[in-house]
Amino acid sequence: MAMDSTRELPKQDFAQTLARGLACLEVLADATTPLGCSDVASAMSVSRAAARRILLTLVHLGYVAEDRGQYSSSPKVLSLGRGMLATGSLWSTVAPEVLQLADRLDDACSISVLENLDILFVCRDATRRIFTSRLGIGDRLPAHCSASGKVLLANLPVDELDRRLRGVTLKAQGPASVTDHATLKIALSQVRQVDYALAIDEMETGTLSLAVPLRERSGKVIAAMSFASHRSRRTPEDLSANVLPQLQRAASRVEATIRNFQDRGWVVI
């Protein structure tokens, strides 16, 4: 659950009730089974009474379904993302580039953005399964142990990176996950130098992922384009020598589309 924004917001401008409602939707979206009121309260760090009011409001609005005291997201939640994923949006426009790259390489490819300390998939080839869980658009992974996440974290301003990491315990996902802040920052510095990231055994044993940044016209990194495979299929040397050039060329074409959207007056994030 991520309620942090990318900048500080004055207290008088922060709508806590809205934030709690969205946080409740995030808790339910991350759950693999329906949750009780007490479960939601615990995940949100609020009282059971507060969680109940939020849940009943969302049920009334149609965003949450309730069955014998158990709550889950309703299909209406999908309408919240309809604008971004609709035909003509940036990520739907570049989806063919991702799918074609996945077909050429016969492995999973995706585009993701950064949300606090998670990556959020906004475009993904869903036909190839690399990780234990099948991942699709809207799913998240911890940024600190994914190639895409490293690219995105590496391109944050130093003070912004420090703010996001402050007080956070990084959890290991795979045998090679980096959980120490200082070690992570050294790794991110190296990513900035080479302009790509490689993650091996960091998310799960045997997994490899490679990512490059996607920049808008000003040079700001707004997303990462990535490739994922398994060591039974690829080697790190293969990724560097053969996959990286293809990923970089595909990223250049996506960046051209991003600039085209900007020329048409769209705000890209």
Score class of each variant (00 low, 15 high):
D4Q: 10
L135F: 08
L141D: 05
A108P: 00
R104F: 11
H60F: 02
D103C: 08
A65I: 05
A250D: 08
D13S: 15
G62M: 04
A176P: 00
T32E: 04
F131W: 12
D4G: 04
A19W: 06
S146I: 05
R166W: 00
K185R: 15
L210N: 08
G36K: 04
L141H: 09
G69E: 04
H181Y: 00
H230L: 07
P213S: 03
L90F: 07
K150D: 08
D139A: 13
D125H: 06
V59L: 01
A241S: 13
L78V: 06
A143D: 02
V158I: 08
R20K: 13
Q173T: 05
R7Y: 12
R48Q: 12
Q70R: 14
R7I: 15
T179V: 11
A19G: 01
G265I: 07
S133G: 03
E216Y: 14
V151G: 03
K150I: 05
V77S: 12
R233E: 08
M225A: 10
R234C: 12
V59E: 03
V59P: 05
E216H: 15
L156T: 03
F261Y: 11
S218Y: 03
H230R: 12
K171W: 05
S5R: 10
D263C: 11
V268R: 01
T57Y: 07
R140W: 04
L198C: 10
R134C: 03
A223G: 09
P10Y: 06
V243S: 12
R234G: 05
F131E: 07
L156K: 01
Q190V: 01
V77R: 15
M44F: 03
A95H: 09
I130W: 06
T169R: 11
D67Q: 15
E66N: 01
A154I: 05
S73F: 00
R124A: 13
T6F: 14
E216C: 14
G206D: 03
L247M: 08
L55S: 00
V194M: 12
D107K: 10
Q248I: 12
C24Q: 03
S112M: 04
R231F: 10
G138S: 05
A95Y: 08
S226G: 15
T183W: 10
T235P: 09
